[in-house]
Design a protein around this nucleic acid. Sequence first.
DNA 1: CATAATGTGCACGTTACTGTGCAAGTTTGT
DNA 2: ACAAACTTGCACAGTAACGTGCACATTATG
Lengths: 259, 259
Amino acid sequence: MTTDLPRARAPRRDAAENRAALLEAAVRLLNDDVDASLESIAAEAGLSRRAVYGHFATRDDLVREVLTRGAARMAASILPISHQDARIEIALYGATLWREVQHARVTAEFALRGPHIDMVSHSLEPARAKLRDTVRRGVKAGQLRRDIRPDVLARLIERSAIDVLTEATHDGLSARAGHRLVMLTALSMAGLGWLDADDVVSHAPELAFQPARGGVPASGAADAPDDSTGRTTRGATIGSTPPGAPAEDAVRDITRENA
Amino acid sequence: MTTDLPRARAPRRDAAENRAALLEAAVRLLNDDVDASLESIAAEAGLSRRAVYGHFATRDDLVREVLTRGAARMAASILPISHQDARIEIALYGATLWREVQHARVTAEFALRGPHIDMVSHSLEPARAKLRDTVRRGVKAGQLRRDIRPDVLARLIERSAIDVLTEATHDGLSARAGHRLVMLTALSMAGLGWLDADDVVSHAPELAFQPARGGVPASGAADAPDDSTGRTTRGATIGSTPPGAPAEDAVRDITRENA
DNA sequence: CATAATGTGCACGTTACTGTGCAAGTTTGT
DNA sequence: ACAAACTTGCACAGTAACGTGCACATTATG
C-alpha cells in the first residue's frame, strides 16, 4: 500500500483531479489510521509528498478539508431523513450511515480524537440532535426502550452503527448485507427484539436496499461485491465468509413466519 | 494532566511501588490516548522520564507489560464465567467487562490498533471463542437472534459492550448504572427486546450489582460515585447527568409490570 | 549511619515527520 | 509549439519522541 520509492513516473491527470485524488486517498487512509503520514497519503493518491503542498498548505489543512466535507456530507444526508414511524427513521439513519461508510467512519473517528473534535462535533451536532429527537419521539410513542435515558440511548445507537460499519469494513460485508445489518443493530439497540426489528426492516419499503446511486461508487468498503441481483430484500443472503468457512451468510432475512 | 516542568521534587516511594505506579499510570493514560508519551506517563506516575528506563527497557516494553497483564486479567475473569442460560452468561460477560473497565478498554483498543494486535488478540482468543460458543448455544436454544451469523454477532456484542464502557467513562456513569447498562445493551444486541432484557437482568440473582470487590478500587472510570446504597437492583437509579440537565437517571430499572 | 538502590537533570544521538526553497522535468491547453 | 501550471527530487531546518550515558541527589535498609 504505502509506496514510497520512485518507480515508473505516475501518469499525470489534471490538477483538480489530483486534489480530489488527494482527498479521496486521505479518506481512505485516515479510515485505517488517523495518523497516516502525508507521505503515505500522497503515495496513495499517486503523487509525491512535495506535490501535496501545492494543494494544501498543511497536512492539517488537508485533514480539515476531509473532515469539513465529510461532516457536511453526513449532515446533508442525515438531516433530510424523516418518517412518522420513529423506528423506520432510525433504520433509515443507519442505512444512510452505511451509504456513506467511509465518510461516516472518518468523521466519527475524528469526532472522538485529535484536535478537530470541536469542529467536527459542532457540524455534526444538528444531525445528532435530530437522532436524539427521533429517539425521544419513539420512546413517547411506546416503540422504543424506556430503560435508558434517550440522549444516552441515541449515543449508543450512533456508536453501534459505527461499529457495524467498522466490522463490515474489516469483514468485507457486501453492500446489501451491511445495509441490512446496520438497520437491524440500530433497532436492536433502540430496544426492539430481533423479530420485531426484522419485521420493520423487511416490511418497510423505504428500507429496501438500493444497489448503487448515480454518482461515485463511494469507494472503500463499498467496493465489496454488490449482490445487486434482485431488488427485493426478501431472501437476500449476502456476506463475506471468514477465511476457510463455507459460504454462509453474515446476515439473514428471517421473518416471523419462518422463525 | 501532562506535567512537564520541574517543581517541588516528588516524594519518593519504594521502587516496586514505582513500577506499579508506572503500570497504573500507563493504563490510565493509554485509555485516553494510545500514543501517550513516556514523558506524560512518567509524570502521571510521579516520576521522571529517565526513571522509567530503570524499570522498562523500552516504552514498548512498558506497553507490552500493560497489555500482557490486561489480557491475562481479562481472560482470568471471563473464562470462568458459566451459566446454563446463554442469555445470563452473556449478561455476565458484559458485567465482567464492566468490572474491569480500564483494562478492558485498553486491551480492546490495542486489540485493534498498533503493533501488538497479534499478541493481544492471541491471548484474548480463548475468551472470544467462549463468547462465540455461548452465542451459538443461545441461538440453538432459541433464545438469541437467528438473523446474524453467530460469529459476527459475537463480535458485535463485544464491540457494543466496549462502547458502553467508553460511553460510561466519558459520561461518568456510576458503577451501578454502568453495570446495568452493559448487560442491557449486550442482551439487546443479542436480539432480546428491551423488556425481555430488563426481565433477565432484573430477575437473575447472578446479575445483581455488587458494590466493590475486596482488592484495589480499580481506579479510573470506576472512581465515579458508587451508589452502593441498597443491594437490590430494584429501583436502582444511578447515573451522572450531563452538565445542566436535571438529575435524571441514565439507566432505569423497569420491569414488565410498570411498562 | 553507611551504602547500595533509585531517581533526577541534562546532554546527546537517532528516527520519523512536517514544511520550505529551488532547479529541473512534464502536461495541459491555447 | 509555447507558456503556464503542475509535479518531482533533493536539500534543509524544525520538532517531538525515544533511548543512553553520566554526575549528582535522595532514600530505603541493614
